[in-house]
Design a protein around this nucleic acid. Sequence first.
DNA 1: TGCGATTTGTCCGTATGTATT
DNA 2: TAATACATACGGACAAATCGC
Lengths: 224, 224
Amino acid sequence: MNHLAALKPLEDTTIRGRTVEQLRRLVVTGELAAGMRLTETELADALGISRGPLREAIRELVDIGLLVSKPYKGLFVREITRKDLEEIYSLRTMLERFAFQEAWEKRTPEALEDLKARNKKLIGSIEAATDPLGPIEAELHLHSWCYELSGHRLLLQSWNRLKPNLQFYFAMHQQAHERKGPKRRSHDLYIRLASGNDLGAMLDHLNDHMRQGLETTIGFIDCA
Amino acid sequence: MNHLAALKPLEDTTIRGRTVEQLRRLVVTGELAAGMRLTETELADALGISRGPLREAIRELVDIGLLVSKPYKGLFVREITRKDLEEIYSLRTMLERFAFQEAWEKRTPEALEDLKARNKKLIGSIEAATDPLGPIEAELHLHSWCYELSGHRLLLQSWNRLKPNLQFYFAMHQQAHERKGPKRRSHDLYIRLASGNDLGAMLDHLNDHMRQGLETTIGFIDCA
DNA sequence: TGCGATTTGTCCGTATGTATT
DNA sequence: TAATACATACGGACAAATCGC
């Protein structure tokens, strides 16, 4: 057993699995514009696969919420309204507060090192400024820390379902504003509190952190 | 436009949609035993459909968590460990507390009547004692009230994803114990607090209610 | 109001890859 | 190792529903 095997998520062996990843990437990066209609035959053709596994992959993305399927009418890239975004953030706040409560007693020196490393990677990604989508991914990876540490598989699964929607909105927002993503020091307090001994302060900060995140990114959406 | 159209959830027009419901029912009622292996060709044959839409329906049930798919190995009905159940209950507690917070200010006299009606239906279903699975469905329908009232679509969706897993476990538990489901007056306090003016008391009660539910139903599972 | 074009939904036959015996 | 069973995937076909003219 190669000890590196645990690091790479074990490349999908099925076309369906790879297609899910491929489509997810195309949507969250904005290469497939929000609201755009997708036709199966075109997609299958472009991806070089047949309609069977493609339709299965589509089902998964519809479940996550990145695609919207209306029977016999068509398949569309999701659009995000202001209310959608508020729902995403409020649910996310609940989940992350819960994750910290579950993870709090499980914090080890190694885990905290891991957290700092993720922040360092985020900062590095911001400073490098090569891939404009890098910081987004790095920030979400930073936030994944508490969910992973909690050991709560159902909670982690919920987060993983929510994550692509956030990623999708961030990329959309960034394109529209032609602006850099997260600021370099935006998570300093987050890290400090997560490493400290005051769970209540951490939970309070999460409310602030999330509200702030919502307010700074909610600008340009049509009210629904 | 018929004004009744909004009442019935509009029977699924696609085989996939109907198959999802059919399979969900077969699983949560225990007609497909936990851990049982399913072969696609048999299933397609038994349901009288082809493998295409069946495989798509399977994807949805795998996402919900009722089925487990191991690539190239097979498809199985999920099994529930003690840890799974604890996770389901702890997440559910979070979601329902959040739902009540969101729904609290939206309670109208009509909404509270609706809640009481759901409880009455639950009691009636228990006393009728015809379909042993009726009370389970009625109880879940009662608990759905706060999610629907909250107007939080993403939250409702999360609940709807969690619900089949609870339903599945309840039916399994009931079969194993040959016992009736919920007691007649189990939700009296729940209803009274939900109709009252002390949100804090309601939230506290949810913790109790859920912990109690977990403890009374956790008996017979293998520790994992 | 129909009619035709397009697309989704569905089915079937077949081939290939994987796991298990 | 060979053989079997089954999941996965492909391609072609047709039916059903929608939309534009």
